[in-house]
Protein backbone atom coordinates (compact mmCIF):
# COMPACT_ATOMS: atom_id res chain seq x y z
CA UNK A 1 0.00 0.00 0.00
CA UNK A 2 1.21 3.48 -0.75
CA UNK A 3 1.99 5.53 2.33
CA UNK A 4 -0.25 8.49 3.16
CA UNK A 5 2.66 10.64 4.22
CA UNK A 6 6.13 9.97 3.00
CA UNK A 7 9.15 11.88 4.19
CA UNK A 8 12.32 11.16 2.32
CA UNK A 9 15.80 12.34 3.06
CA UNK A 10 14.56 15.34 5.03
CA UNK A 11 17.37 17.33 6.53
CA UNK A 12 18.00 20.74 8.03
CA UNK A 13 21.28 22.59 8.27
CA UNK A 14 21.87 26.12 9.41
CA UNK A 15 24.86 28.13 8.26
CA UNK A 16 27.10 29.27 11.10
CA UNK A 17 29.07 32.50 10.94
CA UNK A 18 32.34 30.66 11.35
CA UNK A 19 33.13 27.11 10.43
CA UNK A 20 31.00 24.38 8.91
CA UNK A 21 27.18 24.66 8.85
CA UNK A 22 25.33 23.14 11.80
CA UNK A 23 23.47 19.96 10.88
CA UNK A 24 20.33 19.69 12.97
CA UNK A 25 18.50 16.85 11.26
CA UNK A 26 19.88 14.57 8.59
CA UNK A 27 18.50 11.89 6.31
CA UNK A 28 15.14 11.62 8.03
CA UNK A 29 12.88 9.02 6.41
CA UNK A 30 9.43 8.11 7.64
CA UNK A 31 6.22 6.70 6.17
CA UNK A 32 2.80 7.04 7.74
CA UNK A 33 -0.25 4.99 6.81
CA UNK A 34 -3.59 6.72 6.55
CA UNK A 35 -5.25 6.96 9.93
CA UNK A 36 -2.09 6.14 11.82
CA UNK A 37 -0.99 7.84 15.02
CA UNK A 38 2.76 8.15 15.22
CA UNK A 39 4.84 9.77 17.95
CA UNK A 40 8.32 11.17 17.64
CA UNK A 41 10.21 10.84 20.87
CA UNK A 42 13.67 12.00 21.79
CA UNK A 43 15.62 14.20 24.13
CA UNK A 44 14.84 17.87 24.16
CA UNK A 45 16.90 19.71 21.61
CA UNK A 46 17.37 16.63 19.44
CA UNK A 47 15.56 18.19 16.51
CA UNK A 48 12.15 16.52 16.72
CA UNK A 49 10.34 19.86 16.75
CA UNK A 50 12.40 20.89 13.72
CA UNK A 51 11.13 17.83 11.87
CA UNK A 52 7.55 18.68 12.76
CA UNK A 53 8.05 22.30 11.79
CA UNK A 54 9.39 21.21 8.41
CA UNK A 55 6.38 18.99 7.81
CA UNK A 56 4.11 21.86 8.80
CA UNK A 57 5.92 24.01 6.28
CA UNK A 58 6.99 26.57 8.86
CA UNK A 59 10.67 25.72 8.42
CA UNK A 60 12.03 25.02 5.00
CA UNK A 61 13.93 21.74 4.79
CA UNK A 62 17.47 22.01 3.46
CA UNK A 63 17.29 18.63 1.79
CA UNK A 64 14.66 16.08 0.87
CA UNK A 65 10.96 16.34 0.24
CA UNK A 66 7.60 14.98 1.33
CA UNK A 67 4.49 13.62 -0.24
CA UNK A 68 1.13 13.94 1.48
CA UNK A 69 -1.83 12.03 0.04
CA UNK A 70 -0.12 11.63 -3.30
CA UNK A 71 1.04 15.20 -3.65
CA UNK A 72 4.29 16.87 -2.94
CA UNK A 73 3.89 19.61 -0.35
CA UNK A 74 5.97 22.69 0.25
CA UNK A 75 5.14 25.69 2.41
CA UNK A 76 2.53 25.89 5.15
CA UNK A 77 -1.14 25.28 4.59
CA UNK A 78 -4.35 24.33 6.36
CA UNK A 79 -4.20 20.76 5.03
CA UNK A 80 -1.80 20.21 7.93
CA UNK A 81 -3.40 21.28 11.19
CA UNK A 82 -0.86 22.18 13.85
CA UNK A 83 -1.37 22.06 17.60
CA UNK A 84 1.43 24.17 19.03
CA UNK A 85 3.11 23.62 22.36
CA UNK A 86 1.98 26.94 23.71
CA UNK A 87 -1.54 26.93 22.32
CA UNK A 88 -0.77 30.11 20.36
CA UNK A 89 -4.28 31.44 20.55
CA UNK A 90 -4.51 35.04 19.42
CA UNK A 91 -5.18 36.91 22.66
CA UNK A 92 -7.41 39.56 21.06
CA UNK A 93 -9.89 36.91 19.88
CA UNK A 94 -12.19 34.66 21.90
CA UNK A 95 -11.70 30.90 21.69
CA UNK A 96 -14.57 30.79 19.21
CA UNK A 97 -13.08 33.54 17.04
CA UNK A 98 -9.73 31.79 17.10
CA UNK A 99 -11.32 28.64 15.72
CA UNK A 100 -13.42 30.65 13.27
CA UNK A 101 -10.30 32.26 11.82
CA UNK A 102 -9.30 28.87 10.46
CA UNK A 103 -12.81 27.69 9.63
CA UNK A 104 -13.39 30.80 7.52
CA UNK A 105 -10.24 29.99 5.60
CA UNK A 106 -11.03 26.35 4.91
CA UNK A 107 -14.80 26.32 4.43
CA UNK A 108 -15.04 29.43 2.30
CA UNK A 109 -17.85 27.90 0.26
CA UNK A 110 -20.06 27.28 3.30
CA UNK A 111 -22.37 30.02 4.52
CA UNK A 112 -21.82 31.88 7.75
CA UNK A 113 -24.25 29.76 9.75
CA UNK A 114 -22.65 26.49 8.67
CA UNK A 115 -19.22 27.80 9.54
CA UNK A 116 -20.41 28.90 12.95
CA UNK A 117 -21.81 25.42 13.54
CA UNK A 118 -18.54 23.76 12.56
CA UNK A 119 -16.58 25.92 15.01
CA UNK A 120 -19.13 25.37 17.77
CA UNK A 121 -19.16 21.62 17.18
CA UNK A 122 -15.42 21.20 17.64
CA UNK A 123 -15.32 23.56 20.59
CA UNK A 124 -18.04 21.64 22.37
CA UNK A 125 -16.42 18.28 21.58
CA UNK A 126 -13.23 19.39 23.32
CA UNK A 127 -15.33 20.56 26.26
CA UNK A 128 -15.37 24.29 25.71
CA UNK A 129 -19.10 24.52 25.01
CA UNK A 130 -19.62 26.90 27.91
CA UNK A 131 -16.43 28.92 27.63
CA UNK A 132 -16.04 29.37 23.89
CA UNK A 133 -16.78 33.07 23.97
CA UNK A 134 -14.05 33.89 26.46
CA UNK A 135 -10.69 35.36 25.59
CA UNK A 136 -7.59 33.22 26.20
CA UNK A 137 -6.64 35.41 29.17
CA UNK A 138 -9.72 34.16 31.04
CA UNK A 139 -9.10 30.50 30.19
CA UNK A 140 -6.90 28.08 32.11
CA UNK A 141 -3.85 26.64 30.40
CA UNK A 142 -5.72 23.37 29.83
CA UNK A 143 -8.72 25.12 28.33
CA UNK A 144 -6.48 27.09 26.01
CA UNK A 145 -4.94 23.89 24.73
CA UNK A 146 -8.44 22.46 24.24
CA UNK A 147 -9.16 25.45 22.03
CA UNK A 148 -5.85 24.83 20.24
CA UNK A 149 -6.92 21.23 19.54
CA UNK A 150 -10.36 22.35 18.38
CA UNK A 151 -8.76 24.84 16.02
CA UNK A 152 -6.57 22.19 14.44
CA UNK A 153 -9.38 19.64 14.03
CA UNK A 154 -11.85 22.22 12.75
CA UNK A 155 -9.62 22.74 9.72
CA UNK A 156 -10.44 19.15 8.80
CA UNK A 157 -6.77 18.68 7.86
CA UNK A 158 -5.35 15.68 6.06
CA UNK A 159 -2.60 15.49 8.62
CA UNK A 160 -2.53 16.52 12.22
CA UNK A 161 0.76 17.76 13.64
CA UNK A 162 1.16 18.10 17.40
CA UNK A 163 4.23 19.73 18.89
CA UNK A 164 4.44 18.64 22.53
CA UNK A 165 0.87 19.82 22.97
CA UNK A 166 0.60 18.77 26.60
CA UNK A 167 4.10 19.69 27.69
CA UNK A 168 3.01 22.74 29.65
CA UNK A 169 0.10 21.12 31.49
CA UNK A 170 -0.08 19.50 34.92
CA UNK A 171 -0.34 15.73 34.77
CA UNK A 172 -4.06 15.46 35.59
CA UNK A 173 -5.00 17.91 32.84
CA UNK A 174 -2.58 16.13 30.55
CA UNK A 175 -4.35 12.77 31.05
CA UNK A 176 -7.68 14.41 30.43
CA UNK A 177 -6.57 16.08 27.24
CA UNK A 178 -4.86 12.95 25.96
CA UNK A 179 -8.25 11.29 26.08
CA UNK A 180 -9.94 14.24 24.40
CA UNK A 181 -7.34 14.04 21.65
CA UNK A 182 -7.66 10.28 21.26
CA UNK A 183 -11.44 10.53 21.09
CA UNK A 184 -11.34 13.23 18.40
CA UNK A 185 -8.69 11.38 16.45
CA UNK A 186 -10.76 8.21 16.44
CA UNK A 187 -13.95 9.97 15.42
CA UNK A 188 -12.33 11.80 12.56
CA UNK A 189 -9.99 9.06 11.35
CA UNK A 190 -7.11 11.47 11.14
CA UNK A 191 -3.49 10.73 10.46
CA UNK A 192 -1.47 12.25 13.25
CA UNK A 193 2.17 12.89 14.03
CA UNK A 194 3.02 14.05 17.51
CA UNK A 195 6.25 15.15 19.13
CA UNK A 196 6.67 14.38 22.80
CA UNK A 197 9.27 13.47 25.37
CA UNK A 198 6.78 11.71 27.61
CA UNK A 199 7.15 7.93 27.30
CA UNK A 200 3.73 7.10 28.76
CA UNK A 201 2.00 9.61 26.55
CA UNK A 202 3.66 8.10 23.49
CA UNK A 203 2.60 4.57 24.43
CA UNK A 204 -0.96 5.51 25.31
CA UNK A 205 -1.65 7.41 22.12
CA UNK A 206 0.34 5.94 19.28
CA UNK A 207 0.44 3.02 16.90
CA UNK A 208 4.14 3.49 16.42
CA UNK A 209 6.79 5.34 18.36
CA UNK A 210 9.70 6.72 16.40
CA UNK A 211 12.75 7.23 18.55
CA UNK A 212 15.12 9.92 17.37
CA UNK A 213 18.83 9.88 17.96
CA UNK A 214 20.43 12.84 19.63
CA UNK A 215 21.55 15.80 17.62
CA UNK A 216 23.51 17.13 15.94
CA UNK A 217 22.55 15.37 12.76
CA UNK A 218 19.62 13.66 14.42
CA UNK A 219 17.71 11.01 12.53
CA UNK A 220 15.39 8.05 13.04
CA UNK A 221 16.89 5.69 15.58
CA UNK A 222 14.48 2.85 16.21
CA UNK A 223 10.78 2.37 15.56
CA UNK A 224 8.58 0.67 18.11
CA UNK A 225 5.24 -0.88 17.17
CA UNK A 226 2.60 -0.33 19.83
CA UNK A 227 0.00 -2.97 19.13
CA UNK A 228 -2.52 -2.42 21.91
CA UNK A 229 -6.11 -2.78 20.71
CA UNK A 230 -8.23 0.33 20.30
CA UNK A 231 -10.16 1.96 21.81
CA UNK A 232 -7.63 2.01 24.62
CA UNK A 233 -8.16 2.74 28.24
CA UNK A 234 -5.38 3.79 30.52
CA UNK A 235 -6.31 1.26 33.20
CA UNK A 236 -6.30 -1.58 30.70
CA UNK A 237 -2.90 -0.52 29.42
CA UNK A 238 -1.44 -0.32 32.90
CA UNK A 239 -2.64 -3.85 33.62
CA UNK A 240 -0.91 -5.23 30.52
CA UNK A 241 2.60 -6.60 31.12
CA UNK A 242 3.46 -5.85 27.49
CA UNK A 243 3.11 -2.15 28.34
CA UNK A 244 5.99 -2.33 30.75
CA UNK A 245 8.16 -4.22 28.31
CA UNK A 246 7.63 -1.49 25.69
CA UNK A 247 8.19 1.19 28.26
CA UNK A 248 11.45 -0.43 29.30
CA UNK A 249 12.55 -0.58 25.70
CA UNK A 250 11.76 3.12 25.12
CA UNK A 251 13.46 4.32 28.26
CA UNK A 252 16.40 2.05 27.53
CA UNK A 253 16.84 3.68 24.15
CA UNK A 254 16.56 7.17 25.53
CA UNK A 255 19.04 6.52 28.35
CA UNK A 256 21.53 4.83 26.11
CA UNK A 257 21.42 7.67 23.65
CA UNK A 258 21.77 10.24 26.37
CA UNK A 259 25.04 8.60 27.37
CA UNK A 260 26.31 9.15 23.89
CA UNK A 261 26.19 12.86 24.48
CA UNK A 262 29.58 14.46 24.81
CA UNK A 263 30.17 15.32 28.43
CA UNK A 264 32.51 18.09 29.42
CA UNK A 265 35.44 17.07 31.60
CA UNK A 266 34.88 17.73 35.32
CA UNK A 267 36.39 20.98 36.51
CA UNK A 268 39.89 20.65 37.92
CA UNK A 269 39.96 20.41 41.69
CA UNK A 270 41.34 23.73 42.86
CA UNK A 271 41.48 24.28 46.59
CA UNK A 272 39.74 27.47 47.72
CA UNK A 273 42.27 30.22 48.28
CA UNK A 274 43.14 30.49 51.93
CA UNK A 275 43.36 34.02 53.15
CA UNK A 276 44.73 35.42 56.37
CA UNK A 277 41.95 35.87 58.90
CA UNK A 278 42.40 39.65 58.98
CA UNK A 279 41.31 40.08 55.36
CA UNK A 280 37.89 38.56 56.14
CA UNK A 281 36.85 41.69 57.96
CA UNK A 282 34.12 43.53 56.04
CA UNK A 283 36.00 46.72 55.38
CA UNK A 284 39.06 44.85 54.19
CA UNK A 285 36.92 42.71 51.98
CA UNK A 286 35.32 45.76 50.47
CA UNK A 287 38.65 47.38 49.80
CA UNK A 288 39.94 44.15 48.33
CA UNK A 289 36.94 43.95 46.03
CA UNK A 290 37.41 47.54 44.94
CA UNK A 291 41.07 47.17 44.15
CA UNK A 292 40.41 43.90 42.36
CA UNK A 293 37.77 45.60 40.21
Amino acid sequence: MKPFLELSQIGKTYPTPAGPPAVIVENFNLRLRKGEFVTLIGHSGCGKSTVLSMIAGLTEPSTGGMILAGREVAGAGPDRGVVFQAPCLLPWFTAFENVMLGVDQVYYTADAEERRQIAEYYLSVVGLGEAMHLRPASLSQGMRQRAGIARAFALSPKLLLLDEPFGMLDSLTRYELQEVLLDLWQRNQKTALMVTHDVDEALFLSDRVVMMTNGPAATVGEVLEVGFPRPRSRAQLLADPAYYALREQLIGFLEERSHLRPVAAPPPAVPPPSRPAASRRPLQRLLGALTAA
Binding site: A56, G57, L58, A76, G77, P78, R80, G81, V82, F84, A86, C88, L90, W92, F93, L101, G102, Q105, L155
Partner: peptide, 27 residues
Protein backbone atom coordinates in the same frame (compact mmCIF):
# COMPACT_ATOMS: atom_id res chain seq x y z
CA UNK B 1 6.67 34.37 15.62
CA UNK B 2 4.01 32.04 17.04
CA UNK B 3 1.23 34.37 15.94
CA UNK B 4 2.74 34.68 12.49
CA UNK B 5 2.98 30.88 12.31
CA UNK B 6 -0.72 30.60 13.07
CA UNK B 7 -1.35 32.87 10.12
CA UNK B 8 0.95 30.86 7.90
CA UNK B 9 -0.63 27.53 8.80
CA UNK B 10 -4.05 28.95 8.01
CA UNK B 11 -2.72 30.52 4.81
CA UNK B 12 -4.28 33.87 5.65
CA UNK B 13 -4.34 36.41 2.88
CA UNK B 14 -2.09 39.45 3.22
CA UNK B 15 -5.06 41.57 4.18
CA UNK B 16 -6.24 39.15 6.87
CA UNK B 17 -2.70 38.72 8.15
CA UNK B 18 -2.55 42.50 8.56
CA UNK B 19 -5.97 43.07 10.11
CA UNK B 20 -6.32 39.90 12.21
CA UNK B 21 -2.76 39.43 13.39
CA UNK B 22 -0.29 42.24 12.73
CA UNK B 23 -2.41 45.25 13.68
CA UNK B 24 -3.90 43.78 16.87
CA UNK B 25 -0.48 42.52 17.95
CA UNK B 26 1.12 45.92 17.31
CA UNK B 27 -1.66 48.00 18.85
Amino acid sequence: QDYLNVGRVLKLSRWKMLTRILIPATL
